[in-house]
Nucleic acid binder design. Structure first.
Lengths: 224, 224
DNA sequence: AGATTAATCAAACGTTTGTTTAAGGTGAGA
DNA sequence: TCTCACCTTAAACAAACGTTTGATTAATCT
């Protein structure tokens, strides 16, 4: 049973396309090279012939995702518009990118814990560049106009996690949805995150309760 | 080099405690039973003696996390208080629980993609119970008071992902933080999420831009 | 045409995998 | 002392792992 990769592609491309699907479904360590070769319709030795090692195949998968995500980030967050406009653009584009590269996203996030120094450092290099963009385009303007100090290492993972939640949980949610509420569609997901991120649940029409004092406890100025 | 498990615990407990740390660090498939036995200071055969199989060991780890998280959810979200108060309580308790059981959290989320039907169904059983609580205590009151229809399969993963982001990204963020902005502490993380979830970035002092029209595009009523 | 290169293949390399077996040890109750 | 249930052990099992080898094909260049 072949996966999405068609026979017309080159062997190298076929391996990469099949790999990301299997890695997303079974994990990196849970996917054997023989299974990958079989699904991709290539000989086992071709994988190491083209990629050198299994680990290097993983880094290529990661590069595809991080390069694309960084570009979305750079494109949508820079400019002269206000933060709400920037965020609305960014969230829409990022989720669209996640949808298109959903398997790459899952591999990138669920293999985040891989303690292999080579892999960790590889991801950290991409991460640093994203933090720089976030800091320049979001955190500094925010501090300048409102005085609120937020670290990019706080806001970036937070926003990314929100947008990725749909894909991280989908295997389980699909199973739940068998005889429960269906999985919400993409537009709902995008609208919900945009609305929530810009206005919180207050933006959904929830009146401020007595506990809304949380908005006064300024983040970014906590002593420890 | 022994891990956190001390020699005074029973072998069974020592295996479980060591397993969750290794699973979180290297993944389920990336952790061998011999390595686990060595780190826990027990004989290899003891693992299958106590747990029957490696897979059953994983389900026990998952049960610890899901049972605790479901309890937090049930406790903090029920009652007569308004939604903002409930959410503030829930976020504080949930993050405290995540911090205490951080390794269990990482295993539960990063192994979400395991396609093994037995594992998927196991997680779906817990998930269904959480969706029920979310629906009863959050989605229904929200629909009653504001008319906004949100599916629990949308809000639950979203909120969980926000709170878990700190732990999901920490391996990479620690590496980045080596010579960049440090990793924000726990209070900042909690305050940020509470503030953001209740009031969005508008609650941080950001004035509504021209693009804040997103708050008007009601989620939950999208046509496809 | 002959030489060179990239691509593909079957087969085997030595390890490591999860699991099982059979034999022993240990301490409490009879 | 014997027993019985529980715990622990070393050794072995087949299967799967990532990687390498040497030969063969097909296309490109001289």
């Amino acid at each position: 049973m072949k996966s999405t990769a068609t026979k017309s592609q080159s062997s190298r491309e076929r391996i990469l396309q099949t790999a990301v699907v299997l890695f997303a479904r079974q994990g990196f360590d849970g996917t054997g090279l023989r299974e990958l070769a079989r699904e991709a319709g290539v000989n086992l030795a071709m994988i190491n012939y083209f990629f050198g090692s299994k680990k290097r195949l993983l880094t290529e998968v990661l590069d595809v995702f991080f390069a694309g995500y960084l570009e979305v980030m750079t494109t949508e967050l820079s400019g002269e518009d206000g933060l709400p406009v920037k965020f609305e653009r960014f969230i829409a584009s990022a989720i669209a990118f996640f949808e298109a590269k959903r398997h790459f996203l899952i591999v990138a996030i669920t293999d985040l814990h891989h303690e292999d120094p080579e892999i960790i450092e590889h991801k950290a290099r991409w991460g640093s560049r994203m933090m720089a963009v976030m800091d320049k385009e979001v955190c500094r303007p925010l501090a300048r106009t409102t005085g609120t100090q937020i670290s990019p290492t706080l806001i970036a993972p937070l926003l990314t996690s929100m947008m990725a939640s749909r894909y991280l949980f989908s295997p389980v949610m699909v199973q739940i949805g068998k005889d429960g509420p269906g999985v919400p569609d993409l537009q709902q997901h995008t609208a919900m995150i945009t609305s929530l991120f810009l206005g919180g649940i207050a933006g959904l029409g929830v009146p401020d309760g007595a506990g809304a004092a949380a908005s006064e406890s300024q983040p970014g100025s906590t002593e420890e």
